[in-house]
Computed example of a mutant assay.
Amino acid sequence: MTLSARGLATAPIMILNGPNLNLLGQRQPEIYGSDTLADVEALCAEAAAAHGGTVDLRQSNHEGELVDWIHEARERHAGIVINPAAYSHTSVAILDALNTCDGMPVVEVHISNIHQREAFRHHSYVSQRADGVIAGCGVQGYVFAVERVAMLVAAGA
């Protein structure tokens, strides 16, 4: 299936989560809240379903696995929502992989407002490729990201 032929009815939105997000709801709840990754998946599935779509949510603590999944998304998914977590600030490899996703919507999401945190968190390599960046909205930011990807897919972006 070509990218231009993919819509939400035929291809899911890939939602990628980087390191330590497997501990969402347990790790630093004062920053990241008490919702779990399973809660995020349920929110995203509901948001995608409202647009006739589905999601494929994955999490890895390994940069190479995230790169492999981005390569897979090029062939099988309608768009990507990515919370690269700490890899936002360090991974040229993830940026390079996202740059191979020509014509595919990519929205970056961060649960916390990275611009109110340590200075090293203010820069994201992923933002250079993202069609949108959502930060500081808690897990609700994932819903906003899914909705944005759905709108971009519908517009043929």
Rank of each mutant, 00 (worst) to 15 (best):
I114K: 14
T90R: 15
R121H: 09
Y32T: 04
L152P: 06
G156R: 15
C137Q: 12
V92E: 12
I114H: 08
L21Q: 04
D35F: 00
Y32S: 08
V109N: 05
L37P: 05
I15E: 01
V81H: 04
Y125I: 02
E75P: 00
H71F: 13
A73S: 13
W69G: 07
I13E: 01
A5R: 13
G52N: 10
V107K: 05
M104D: 05
R76I: 03
R74Y: 03
G7K: 11
V139W: 04
G18S: 04
N61F: 13
A50V: 02
E147W: 02
M104A: 01
I114Y: 06
L95R: 14
V107E: 12
A85D: 09
E30K: 12
G141T: 10
S88L: 04
E147F: 03
G156Q: 00
L23R: 15
P29K: 02
A5G: 05
N83V: 05
E72N: 12
V153Q: 14
P105D: 07
V92G: 10
V126M: 08
C44P: 09
V55R: 08
T90Y: 15
I114A: 09
L95H: 10
R74F: 00
I80R: 03
R121L: 00
V143I: 08
A73R: 05
N20P: 02
R117V: 08
G53A: 07
G103I: 11
R27W: 12
H123A: 13
H71D: 12
P84E: 08
G79N: 08
P105R: 01
R148V: 01
E147T: 01
G53L: 03
H89C: 03
I70M: 11
E30W: 08
S124C: 01
H123Y: 11
V55T: 13
N22Q: 06
V106Y: 06
R74M: 02
I70C: 07
I94G: 09
E46A: 15
H71Y: 14
H89E: 05
A155P: 01
A48C: 10
Y32F: 15
G64N: 13
L24K: 04
A119G: 05
Q26L: 09
N99M: 15
A49E: 13
G25V: 06
A73L: 06
D56T: 09
G138P: 00
V107H: 07
T10L: 09
A11M: 14
I114W: 01
R76P: 00
H123I: 09
G52P: 07
L37A: 14
H89Y: 12
G64I: 12
A78G: 13
A78P: 07
S91D: 15
I111R: 07
D35T: 00
N113Q: 11
E46T: 14
Q140M: 09
L37D: 07
H123L: 07
L43E: 06
A150L: 07
N61M: 06
Q59R: 11
V109Q: 03
W69Y: 03
D68K: 13
A49N: 10
A119L: 10
V153N: 00
G18N: 13
V139P: 01
A9N: 09
M14Q: 03
V153D: 02
Q140E: 14
P105A: 08
L95P: 03
H115T: 02
Q128C: 05
T10A: 11
H115D: 15
A157T: 14
A145T: 14
A86F: 09
V107M: 10
R58C: 00
M1S: 11
R148C: 08
N99I: 02
F120W: 14
I82Y: 15
D96H: 01
D56K: 07
N22M: 04
